[in-house]
Every structure is written in C-alpha cells, then in structure tokens.
C-alpha cells in the first residue's frame, strides 16, 4: 500500500464515521462539530485529487462559513439541542438509503467497472457493459494525464470567458446577491410582530399582578382601560 492509499483509507473511515454520527446523534451541537470533521476529510480528498484550489476553498467556505452558520443556528435555537434523533419514518428512510446505495453501487460502482455483466442474465439486460465504458450512452475513458500546472489560471479565465462560463458565473453572482438580501429579510421579518406580542404579554402580566393586589374579586384578566387605572392608582 502506498502512503496515498493509507491516507485515503484513513480519510474515508473518518468521513463516513463522522457522517454517520452526524445523522444519528441526539446532540445537535456535537453533530455540527462532527460535520466540520466531514468537511475537513473532503478537503483531504481534494488534495489527493491534486486539486489544492478546491481544498482551500472547502476549508474557507464550508468550515469557515457554513459550519459557523450551522453552529450559530444551533445556538440560536436553544432547547432544541437535545432532541429525539429519529422521526417515525426512520426505518423506511434507512431502507431507502441502503437500497439507493446498492443501486448506485451496481450501476456505477466496482461491479460495473470490473465485472462483465453480459455473462449474468438479468444484469446484462439492465446494464450494457462493453470494453469501452459508458455513462448512459456516452462513452468515457480515463485521461491518464497530470493536472496542468496552470489549472487555476485556466479555471479563472474560463469563468470570465464569454464562450465558456461567463453567463453561469454572472447568474450565480446574482443568486448570491438575492440570497443575501433574502436571508436578511427573512431573519428580521418577524420582529415587529414579536415586539407587539411581547408588549401584550407584559401588559397582561401587569394586569394580573394588579388584580392580585386588589384581591381575588375579579378572576378574569382585566381590560386595557382597567390596567391603566390601576397604574394611576399606584402613583
């Protein structure tokens, strides 16, 4: 085993283990911390794929921004941290996820890439395996070449090239703009209603206190005018 294979195995075990912890734990905060471990493992995979740019971007965007956002949300929704980890359809969800994994594995996994399906009766009807591998009907083959040293510069030029990715680049910039404005709007939308509700609660509490001071003559909460009257009596 080469050192890269050992690193890959360690990363794979860490990522899959941490991901399983994330989706099964009852403590949401620990789940968020384990999610950071998953993101770090993905950055390690990108390094193994000779893609330093995306490894750094992964650390900056996922760990630096998205994990922090998630941890903020976990902290802001206190009382929800310790929770019931599963809902009623958890068993069905586990079966569905396992079935999907098996399906992916059969379609595109090592079986598809190494075993000749044409010898197996049912699978030969489902999957066409030739010596030239296909994804759908598109043939593909290994490039077997190193990453060009200028791949970052090439990528940057492709993003601003009108014949390549300029339009999606602009659209995604517009999406980020709209999302930032929308997120701010959503997060502060409830504030006036909340303030009104808080004031109403405070007023009701004052009215109850005033009623308690007067004795148990009127058990139901007092109307607004009566509350104002009691406050003037106090002075």
């Amino acid at each position: 085993m080469t050192i890269q294979q050992v690193v890959f195995a360690v990363l794979a075990v860490a990522v899959i283990g941490a991901a399983l912890f994330v989706v099964t734990t009852g403590n949401l905060f620990r789940g968020a911390l384990m999610l950071i471990l998953v993101f770090f493992g993905m950055a390690g995979f990108y390094v193994l794929l000779d893609n330093g740019l995306f490894a750094v971007a992964q650390v900056m965007i996922y760990i630096g921004a998205i994990s922090i956002l998630i941890i903020f949300a976990v902290m802001l929704t206190r009382g929800m941290q310790a929770m019931i980890p599963r809902n009623a359809q958890a068993t069905g969800a586990a079966v569905a996820a396992a079935a999907l994994f098996v399906a992916i594995f059969l379609a595109f996994g090592p079986l598809r890439l190494t075993v000749d399906f044409s010898a197996v009766p049912v699978l030969s009807a489902l999957f066409r395996t030739e010596t030239a591998r296909t994804l759908g009907d598109v043939p593909w083959q290994y490039a077997n070449q190193p990453v060009p040293e200028t791949y970052i510069a090439d990528f940057g030029r492709a993003l601003v090239n009108i014949n390549q990715y300029l339009l999606p680049f602009l659209l995604i910039a517009f999406l980020v703009d709209a999302v930032l404005a929308g997120a701010v709007h959503l997060a502060r939308q409830r504030k006036p209603a909340e303030l009104i509700a808080e004031r109403r609660e405070i007023a009701e509490e004052e009215a109850e206190e005033a009623a308690a001071l007067r004795g148990a003559a009127s058990p139901e909460p007092l109307p607004q005018g009566a509350m104002a009257a009691t406050t003037t009596q106090d002075h």
Binding site: V22, M83, A90, A97, L100, F101
Partner: peptide, 18 residues
C-alpha cells in the same frame, strides 16, 4: 455514494430542521 446515502437518510429521518 456512501456519503450521499448517509445524507439522504439524515434528510428523511431527522426530526430537526437544522
């Protein structure tokens, strides 16, 4: 594929939006 299926389970089986 394993990570995708784990994530799918998480989306389907969790009781908390976060």
């Amino acid at each position: 594929a394993a990570l995708f299926c784990i994530g799918l389970y998480g989306v389907l089986a969790r009781k908390n939006a976060i």
